[in-house]
Write a protein that binds this DNA or RNA. Structure first.
Lengths: 90, 90
DNA sequence: TTATTATTTAGATATATATCTAAATATCTA
DNA sequence: TAGATATTTAGATATATATCTAAATAATAA
């Protein structure tokens, strides 16, 4: 369950994409200009982030604009914190 | 940096290992009895978790006892929270 | 409608990873 | 020291993944 999330986040380029989208939503070509990969590779990474429900894309004319799924990310954050919280010895 | 952590956590069996060790420290044979993998495979997973600094093992006679690295996990948690925190539009 | 721009899909490749069996190593006990 | 128990290492295999180039699809502009 957290699995898909951790896998999605376990890649440098995908972490960078998240970081970029924290600042503002961006088109695919915007994003690719900040990374050292081809469009095709970026498309693949966006797909993984979409499947993990961390980002969404909407079409705006010729472009597709990606943005973070804020509420999902917040839930994910809570789940991770819960997962990593060490209970006091019971 | 968070990369190694996310990769280490991006596997079901390793998540289970973390969950087991949250309750108490355990020997390798203890752990393997809770999972559906061979000793060799477990050894591999323990290695990955050790390299990510999430767990440590100490020898106790014939056995090696693994436990969580509490302080590291807490730091990791903080880093992840920071990473996933969405800044207010600046 | 044709050309241009933006993105995705298909297909290939190389590397990483999860798993296994078998062998090696380490500690303890008789 | 020999045998038993616990863990790791070596080597093999199958699957997943990150990447690329080239082709396909979608929207806009001329």
């Amino acid at each position: 369950m957290l699995n898909k999330t951790f896998s999605a986040l376990a890649d440098n380029n995908r972490q960078k994409i998240i970081d970029l989208l924290k600042k503002r939503e961006m088109s695919v070509s915007d994003i690719v200009s900040h990374l050292n990969i081809t469009m095709a590779t970026l498309s693949h990474h966006l797909d993984i982030l979409k499947r993990a429900d961390l980002i969404s894309g909407r079409r705006d004319g010729q472009k597709i604009i990606y943005s973070l799924n804020f509420s999902v990310i917040q839930e994910v954050e809570e789940k991770i914190v819960k997962f990593l919280k060490i209970k006091n010895k019971k």
